[in-house]
Design a protein around this nucleic acid. Sequence first.
DNA 1: TTGTAAGCGTTATCAA
DNA 2: TTGATAACGCTTACAA
Lengths: 341, 341
Amino acid sequence: MKTKKVTFADIAKYTGFSKTTISRYFNDPDSLTLENQQKIADALDALDYKENKVGRILASGRTEFIGLIIPNLYMHYYSEMLNQILATYETYGYKFLVFAGNEKADVERKYIEELMAYNIEGMIVLSPTIPSDELASYNVPVVGIEREDRYISSVNTDNYMGGVQAASLLRKSDCDILIHVNGNIPDTSPASGRIKGFVDVCEEYNVPYELILTHLGNTFEKNRNKIEEIVALLEKKYPDKKKGIFMPNDTHANVLLNYLFQKYGKLPETYQIIGFDNSPISREAVIPTSTVGQQISLIANEAMKILSDQMEERKKRRPAPLKEPVHKIIPPILIRRETTA
Amino acid sequence: MKTKKVTFADIAKYTGFSKTTISRYFNDPDSLTLENQQKIADALDALDYKENKVGRILASGRTEFIGLIIPNLYMHYYSEMLNQILATYETYGYKFLVFAGNEKADVERKYIEELMAYNIEGMIVLSPTIPSDELASYNVPVVGIEREDRYISSVNTDNYMGGVQAASLLRKSDCDILIHVNGNIPDTSPASGRIKGFVDVCEEYNVPYELILTHLGNTFEKNRNKIEEIVALLEKKYPDKKKGIFMPNDTHANVLLNYLFQKYGKLPETYQIIGFDNSPISREAVIPTSTVGQQISLIANEAMKILSDQMEERKKRRPAPLKEPVHKIIPPILIRRETTA
DNA sequence: TTGTAAGCGTTATCAA
DNA sequence: TTGATAACGCTTACAA
């Protein structure tokens, strides 16, 4: 522990070369003779050299750091996305500085300031809190995922198609009335497309439908109560009709399913349920639940590809600054399981 | 974007002070006159200075980085722990470089090498893959959580007490036979204490018991099949007995519960179930499931406290190297819900 | 209370 | 193919 770290200077002294040559051994080995490469390699071994990237960063400006801003990790969707993003390390080699802001804008801002102080090369933002024009103003490549993205590049699921898929499946399951439960989503959020897709299908085929746009709450207990209310409402309004319900995500679909199961000991014939995301809970539920699946691995990889392109561009002599943000849309995949016919 | 970044040199020139004084403004402002503090503050504003920590790291050696090695984020336990660890940023200010190694030792090693190249100040390791003596050899403070910890500091749940709590609850629920399902856990893993606690209670009170120690598989489908087998076995062996089953975690408890619910439309009187962790799934299950709860937030905070102490110690002039690793044990909290009497 | 000057460990530029 | 020298942005003795 007391032994000072070995530096290029030490290796230079040991081998008789200059520091420059040692640096070249790492960055452009072919510019050295094979013989000298070997000499240096031996010296590294003998001295037990460990690289120090801080010096490199200072001299070159390349940190290979990406900042990652996530709302939270309670929702399985986010942890799965994080998992997939972290996994790109093996392809791209970028390291991730991860932060969960829990929707507090000022905390997120403070953290982003810190990230900038470490010279991160790019940012991936899942959190909806900070508007995209502000994110863009940091002058670092940014990719947003499933959030407002007017002034930044982004990768999103084709939410409109998701709404269409869900409504179509419920319609074909011979439902008398289609219901879509969702939050009060702003028009700027990609998720709002889901509502539109759902409505368009219902209107095209003249299927009766109802939108229940209300915040379901942030805890299980609140979700549960809200969903009880909704079921009570629906059973009063449409007592003998076959109800097809499109829930905003698999977690909420599961709460609904479990509630019905407890009430009736099974999923009654008069209910069909479809969720969103294809989270593990949808497979592991008491009845495997149909869902509109997001291709999380694909989304993560596309986000890294876009970000990586933009980061590479900046390293060039005369970087051509991006004129327009890039927006990539990933189709959802309908997963039919046992809660729809 | 073309504008070069503002440095201490620029501020020094602008204000007429030296770089040293500027540095002092940030690190020890009280050593300047109030008047001069104000002058510099104004200059920072006027020039729109953004701090650059890379220079600071190079000069001082303090990165404020902690490396975090996680097995995966599929398991809710890990994402919840990650969430709590990230949240300590607001208390301690350390930034986290996160890596999910998916149990591949060589990939994990490669990543740790990289972390060391960035001069991380400490490491938190949840992953069981790399033995603690190897982790200790990196000469950086390390805290392990729920993993083998002979040569490193650690924070663990009191697994023995967890086993005792589970067995006691099942016993008091008038079960005729107690069953504990778990993997083939090495003795060095803290989780092995659970088995011991369970067995000790059964023997003390002369309650018949059975251990089913077998790997349940890594996918839902495999879990499900294995658990079907186990149920078949138990119903053959103990047809009319009241069976109290202690599952290795809440996910598996939920698979069991759902299987029984599908088979019988309810949880039969002859079954009692208790899980481990207190993951969200235990509350959100078709029947809220009893569980031995891990105090994840507390564990995360204790881990950071131990790590932070050791990191601070190293910054001192003559650091007193830690003689013995510190091991902190956190009691579990028994959560009684509806799957036990 | 403030300044001078020497680092920290690399990479970049120019010259040989 | 190699080397000398100057950055990179900040901290830290030591001196004033």
